[in-house]
Amino acid sequence: MAIHIHSGKKHLKCNLKESKLQSVPFRIHADCDAPVSTFFEPYVQTGKNDNDKNPNLTASFRGYPLKGRKIELPEGYVGVLLHESSRPSREKDERNFYVVNKFKDMVYWNWDKIPSKNDAYLNVLDWIDVAEVLHSPITEE
């Protein structure tokens, strides 16, 4: 199965509007637009006694309390949103994705738990540093 990602470079160079990403701790069985700016964003509040640089955030989804934190992607990386117009029915078929948007940061939300190093998705970024050390070419001094 081949996977194609289209118009990546071209798109990223021209200034795509950066998207706001909210990573939420539940699965909504839908793929559609949602009124995030009126039903979600106005309720995002910044914690009182936190460090200003990366304060804890709170919000709510269908009555569930959420605790979140802004996650910046490491220097030199950019996040991309991919869109697949039609998913092939067979496993072997090629899949085509298109870059539709990009992001530099996202808000990672947990259900009633402050995001921390216990969250796999936050730790995953460690790999980038480790990979850098492991795989960067060795230069003779």
Partner: peptide, 14 residues
């Protein structure tokens, strides 16, 4: 009723 967010926060979801 919004299909994604459900209700405005006037409503007690619980």
């Amino acid at each position: 009723c919004d299909p994604v967010f459900g209700y405005p926060q006037l409503v007690r979801f619980s």
